[in-house]
Simulated assay, not measured.
Amino acid sequence: QAPENVVADRTVTVEFITQKGDGISGEFTSETKRVKVHPGEITLVHFFASNPTSSDMITQSIPSVTPGEAARYLHKTQCFCFDQQTLLAGERKNMPMIFYLDPDIPSHINQFTLSYTIFDVTERVAGKNNSVAAN
């Protein structure tokens, strides 16, 4: 549910940082490194991930917000981080993220960083599937 009002006379800078967990050999980047948004404004940014290996991979991206206080005012309406993402062997994937900032974001928060770390969870997911099959 998007807010009904946009605070047009205020901007907040959101920076995007991507990191790769152990075992991720491919690319994981954000198309946009920094964006200025008005609180209440719906914003779309794109992230890209690639799997240069010859095996399919299942990934999970974990978000982190700095300063932590800003996390309460960041609302994602669509995010690749909501679900595990399958990257086929050799695939390059566009992963959109749509967000808005709560119009009530405190005035002292005029910039924050949203960081994503991508992890390879293929073995963990395969282990779950095998244990379910065994029961």
Rank of each mutant, 00 (worst) to 15 (best):
R92H: 14
N135V: 14
R72Q: 15
F80N: 00
G21F: 04
V65S: 04
T66L: 15
N5V: 15
T32F: 04
H46E: 13
L44I: 11
C81E: 00
A89G: 13
D102P: 03
K20W: 00
T122W: 07
L101D: 03
V65N: 03
T66I: 14
G127I: 01
A126T: 09
F80A: 07
G68P: 11
R34A: 15
R10V: 03
T66H: 14
E123M: 06
N135M: 14
L114Y: 06
S115L: 11
P96W: 06
S115M: 11
K33F: 04
S131I: 12
I118G: 01
V6G: 02
T11D: 07
P67K: 03
F47H: 00
F47Q: 01
N129W: 14
M97N: 12
P67C: 06
D102G: 08
D22L: 11
V12G: 09
V7N: 09
A2E: 11
P106D: 10
N129Q: 15
F28H: 02
R10Q: 00
N129H: 11
T11G: 04
S107Y: 06
V35H: 05
V45N: 02
E69H: 04
D9V: 12
N51Y: 00
D102Q: 07
G21W: 02
D104S: 10
V6R: 00
N94Q: 05
H38N: 13
D104G: 08
A134C: 08
V65D: 05
S61I: 08
G90W: 00
S61G: 10
A133E: 09
F47M: 00
D120H: 00
L87G: 06
D104T: 04
Q78G: 08
F82N: 04
K128D: 12
V45T: 05
G40F: 06
F119K: 01
E15K: 09
P52T: 02
M95K: 01
P63S: 14
L44M: 14
T66M: 15
Q84M: 10
T66P: 06
M57Q: 15
V45L: 05
T117I: 12
M57V: 14
A70R: 02
F16K: 01
T117N: 10
E69S: 09
D120L: 01
Y73H: 07
Y73P: 06
Y73I: 04
E69K: 04
T13M: 10
R92W: 11
A71T: 06
S25P: 09
L44A: 12
H46L: 15
L44V: 10
P52G: 01
Q78N: 14
H108W: 15
